[in-house]
Amino acid sequence: MQKTLSVLLVATLTLSACSGWRESRVNPTNWFGSSTPAPAPTQTLANDPNALVPKQREGAGLFSRPDPVDNSVAIARVDELRIDPTPGGAIILVTGVAARQGAYDARLVRVESEENQKNGVLEYTFRVSYPATATNQGTERSRQVLDAINVSQDDLQGIRLVRVVGQENALESRRR
């Protein structure tokens, strides 16, 4: 009984000493100010597809973080390119060999260029990330990396060639 009473007394005194909590930025009720009138928008947003998407502000917000840095590089060699048709488009499956073991975060990054659009080429770069510490080279089988991407029927309109690029080579597949 005496321990409970003393803990309750200490908690009460500690809580009463926190009178600055009301004005603190940590207090969730202080995160937003009171509402103020704003002028009505002059242009109509009826045809804007992103009308409800807020505009991004850099460095604003309580929990904002800087944009992540991309440390990925092109894979050493692309071994296989397979395109499997699906009812909604196609799946592009790519297998490659990394320069050393430990490659992670494999992804196909689309290369956008005016020349590719004009020629009907869908080009991807096969990129991977490596650990910061040195790793063994190992066998070719232990360095094998696989990634796939789903491409919609709309993205395939007018495409005659699919190309995947690595550091040493590139593989292409033409439409029949």
Rank of each mutant, 00 (worst) to 15 (best):
S152H: 00
N150D: 11
Y130W: 02
L122S: 04
Q153V: 04
R160D: 10
A148M: 05
V165C: 01
S152T: 08
E140D: 15
F126L: 13
E140Q: 15
Q157T: 10
R141I: 14
V145C: 00
T133V: 12
D154M: 07
R163V: 14
L161M: 13
A148K: 09
D155A: 09
G120R: 05
S129W: 02
F126T: 11
V128L: 03
E140W: 09
N136I: 11
R141P: 06
E140L: 12
R160W: 02
Q137P: 08
S152G: 04
T133A: 15
D147S: 14
I159T: 08
T135I: 08
L146V: 15
T125I: 11
V164N: 06
V128R: 04
V165R: 07
L146T: 14
Q137F: 11
T125G: 12
S142V: 02
E140I: 13
D154V: 12
R141H: 10
T135H: 06
L161T: 13
D155M: 05
G158P: 02
G120K: 04
A132E: 14
I159G: 00
R141W: 06
D155W: 00
L122M: 08
V121P: 02
V165K: 02
L146F: 10
Q144Y: 03
I149D: 04
T135K: 10
Q144A: 14
G138Q: 04
R127T: 08
R163D: 07
Y130V: 09
V145K: 00
L146H: 13
V165F: 00
A132F: 05
R143Q: 03
D155S: 08
R163G: 08
A132S: 09
G158F: 07
T133S: 15
E123T: 15
L156F: 06
Q157C: 02
R163T: 11
G138P: 02
V151L: 00
L156P: 02
V162S: 03
Y124C: 02
G120N: 08
S129L: 04
R127V: 06
G138A: 05
V151P: 01
A134W: 06
D147G: 11
I149Q: 05
R127W: 01
D155F: 00
G158H: 09
Q157K: 15
S129D: 07
I159H: 07
E140C: 07
Q153F: 03
L161V: 13
R141S: 12
R163K: 11
D147W: 04
Y124E: 01
R160C: 04
V162K: 00
R141N: 10
Q137M: 11
R163S: 10
T135L: 08
D147Q: 14
Q153K: 10
A134I: 14
A134M: 15
R163L: 07
R143L: 02
Q157Y: 05
D147C: 10
V121T: 15
V128K: 05
A132L: 10
I149K: 04
Q157P: 01
Q137N: 14
D155L: 01
E140G: 15
I159C: 05
V128A: 06
R160Q: 11
Q153T: 07
L146K: 12
Q157F: 05
L146W: 04
E140N: 13
A132V: 09
R160H: 08
R127A: 09
